[in-house]
């Protein structure tokens, strides 16, 4: 079973975000980068599916600056992925279309495959677009927000929708699945795993190798701004009854949200 897992590196949630003076992006020095949390579920699911089949190859891949995204690829290899592909963006802004295009071209170069796994969205830009675009470019189905996968002759895939309801799809042939929380519990990398990961093969390519250039960009992020300061909280006083009365009055007369 050949499985590709697409990873993105994102700033750790605790990171303080600062804007570049020209407003073209965030100041990246001092940012702690981690694997996108949803991508960990994708890696775990790939390993489980491979091992349940009694063998195969899990290839982790990422588009981004080589010097840093390699860390997350090695983490995934330490969890148990077999090899990696890094597509070096070398500091260029890459939109969802360019990322999906680069990933699809790299996958096509590798040959036949059974499955592509991603996270349901990356917590930095919350675009939730790469899996679907990847499906379109590879001409295979996609399912997002996946909370359960049952592999067999065909695959049964559960997708979480409104109010905890689930849509169940039957997918035949290769597909792109975007993992939600709840799909599994990602394993931690073991120490021997970390040692082994250092020696696992990592292919390198550039955006140009993948046939991608900035001329293909469809959306560009610009004019980054910090949110306006919130006015200080208004603390209510008195006993429970008095506070409750006052809150209802404020919500109706001042905030006008009721």
């Amino acid at each position: 079973m050949r499985i590709f897992v697409c990873l993105k590196q994102v700033p750790d949630t605790e990171t303080r975000i600062q804007i570049k003076t020209d407003k073209s992006g965030i100041e990246e020095s001092g940012v702690k980068w981690v694997m996108n949390p949803y991508d960990e579920y994708a890696v775990e699911e790939a390993l489980k599916l491979r091992d349940a089949k009694g063998g195969g190859q899990v290839t982790v891949m990422s588009v981004g600056p080589k010097s840093r995204v390699t860390d997350s690829l090695r983490t995934a290899m330490a969890m148990g992925a077999d090899d990696g592909i890094v597509i070096d963006s070398a500091g260029e802004q890459v939109d969802t279309f360019m990322a999906a295009k680069a990933l699809s071209e790299a996958i096509k170069k590798e040959g036949a495959f059974d499955l592509v796994l991603t996270g349901r969205h990356a917590i930095d830009d919350n675009a939730a677009s790469v899996p679907q675009i990847l499906g379109e470019l590879l001409n295979i189905p996609h399912v997002t927000v996946v909370s359960k996968i049952t592999a067999g002759e065909s695959m049964l895939v559960e997708r979480e929708i409104e109010g905890g309801a689930r849509e169940i799809f039957e997918v035949t042939g290769p597909c792109v699945l975007a993992a939600n929380k709840g799909l599994n519990t990602p394993r931690y990398a073991s120490l021997p795993g970390i040692m082994k990961a250092k020696k696992k093969p990592l292919k390198e390519m550039t955006l140009a190798d993948a046939g991608v250039s900035s001329a293909q960009m469809k959306t560009r992020l610009k004019d980054f701004q910090l949110p306006p300061d919130k006015p200080a909280v208004k603390m209510l006083s008195g006993d429970a009854g008095a506070q409750a009365k006052e809150l209802v009055r404020l919500l109706m007369e001042e905030a006008k949200v009721l």
Binding site: P11, T13, T15, R16, I17, I19, I26, I123, D124, D125, N126, A215, Q216, M217, K218, T219, R220, L221, K222, D223, F224, Q225, L226, P227
Partner: peptide, 18 residues
């Protein structure tokens, strides 16, 4: 415009070649 990094900042999304 959209929020980024869990609402820690916002940015304009400009359409190009679209």
């Amino acid at each position: 415009r959209k929020p980024l990094y869990s609402g820690k900042c916002t940015a304009e999304v400009e359409f190009v070649n679209s």
